[in-house]
């Protein structure tokens, strides 16, 4: 019995110290001077983290927009409110689905890749040799990746939203026969740029920071064996996904909680 309690205590202390390490890690990585050719390093990471996630984001956005229109139409038509399809698709995407789903996809694709890459660098002692040569790996390896993730996810979110709305248009207007004018004009009337679009972008900025932070930290902190790498990669996807969903609730409550 006491053995279990002690184990629980140890686990709590371990978790707390790991969160503390993660926090210090973030602060040290963000507030450090960029290394020479820092812009180039960032650019490279923008490619690996952002550009290479575009395909999955576009395809998913398209399908989600199309399904939203399909499902939404069947429900709205029973209220005679099918003209509201445009605003339904746009609001769902812009406020919730684009930031959240893009972040989840990002965590799975880019997040796990980041963890694995940094973990492999740790396991093959590249990070150690970098330190021995006198270069701080936080500056050269971690910081560019953090900034790339922070900038990429909002862009991916916007692309997701745009493609989703277009997908909704394809299904709603071209296929199901909603009047083209009302799809767009109802949408324009009800979607507010600052309250809806910008709030969605703010969400994606927060998600970008949190997901990339988790991914990079898990890679940096892991036990440098192949088992350690695979466990850390799984942890990145799980923790990042849960964090996104949890933060989404908090942000939504803050942003949209007192509307209407």
């Amino acid at each position: 019995m006491t053995g279990h309690i002690a184990a629980l205590g140890r686990a709590t202390l371990d978790t707390l110290s790991s969160i503390g390490r993660a926090g210090l890690f973030l602060v040290q990585s963000i507030f450090c001077l960029p290394p020479r050719e820092g812009f180039h390093l960032w650019l490279r990471q923008m490619h690996f983290v952002g550009v290479m996630s575009v395909a999955i984001v576009l395809v998913s956005g398209l399908f989600i927009g199309m399904v939203l229109a399909l499902q939404g139409f069947t429900i709205l038509v029973s209220f005679g409110a099918d003209e509201a399809l445009g605003q339904m698709v746009a609001l769902s995407l812009v406020r919730e689905l684009a930031p959240v789903v893009a972040a989840l996809l990002f965590a799975g694709r880019a997040g796990s890749a980041l963890t694995a890459e940094i973990g492999l660098m740790k396991a093959t002692e590249q990070l150690t040799s970098m330190e021995m040569i006198g270069v701080d790996p936080l500056r050269r390896i971690v910081a560019p990746r953090l900034w790339a993730g922070f900038v990429s996810l909002p862009i991916l979110t916007v692309l997701f939203g745009v493609v989703g709305i277009w997908g909704g248009y394809l299904v709603g207007v071209d296929w199901l026969g909603v009047y083209k004018g009302s799809y767009w004009s109802n949408m324009q009337d009800s979607v507010n740029f600052v309250d809806d679009v910008l709030n969605g972008v703010v969400k994606s900025l927060v998600f970008g920071l949190v997901v990339t932070w988790i991914a990079v930290f898990q890679g940096y902190d892991l036990i440098p064996t192949s088992e350690g790498i695979s466990r850390a990669t799984t942890r990145t996807v799980v923790y990042a996904s849960l964090a996104v969903l949890g933060l989404d609730f908090v942000l939504t409550a803050l942003m949209f909680g007192d509307l209407g």
Partner: peptide, 20 residues
């Protein structure tokens, strides 16, 4: 191109979607 697409997307969301 990626970053430009993001900015254009935002503009689209501003004009066409939210009637800014």
């Amino acid at each position: 191109i990626f970053m430009l697409a993001g900015i254009l997307g935002l503009v689209f969301l501003g004009l066409r979607v939210s009637g800014l």
